[in-house]
Amino acid sequence: MITLTINGLDLSVEKGTTLLEAARFFGFPIPTLCHMDGLSPYGACRLCVVEIGEGSKAKLVSSCTYPAEEGLKVRTASSRVVKARKMILELLLASCPQSKIIQDLASAHNVGQQRFRQEHEDCILCGLCVRMCKEQMMAKAIGFRGRGEKRSIGTPFDIKSDVCRLCGGCIYVCPACQLRCTYNEPEKAICGACANLSPPCIEKEEFDDMMCSMEPCVACELDKD
């Protein structure tokens, strides 16, 4: 067991626990976007920053990737953490203003407006869909491509991947386009991702109900009737 202090409270946790897991277990809320139970930690969105150390050595780390250390002093909601988190939310809001999840997070952290040039991306490069595809769906159909400002997520050569089963897992976990899929009416979709991916129900016979994440699905309900 490892003993550490979170927000002044002495706690002990199992070895190998991350700061995020420890804090959440003891009831300290830390917002996240790119973290999901069952997927490997990635540290992409930086929303889960916490402050560790004391005095001049204090620094911000991403709690989802930082393992608990003996005697570590963690602050999950210090003024420095809150300031950093607000800035990150503002930046996320600037790149993906239509995302319901990001809007909700921003409003929960009192970020009422953002000062940056509005982009209308449909991706924050959090890598959730890539990890979902690789670690849960065992498909490895999508991945990161390019680098720098040209970095994007997609299939190799931008054509439908041979290993993609159209499970919809990537859309299900996406914080930028999640729940905006319009199922059997892809032309009405806001993000357009469904139009590109074609939801599993369209080829229902072929794939049956194999690992479909689209639930509840209007197409399925209509099918039943």
Binding site: K140, R145, R147, T155, P156, S161
Partner: peptide, 12 residues
Amino acid sequence: HSLVDIYGVATF
């Protein structure tokens, strides 16, 4: 290697 990984390296 998966094609995605190779493509990721090649485009990087």
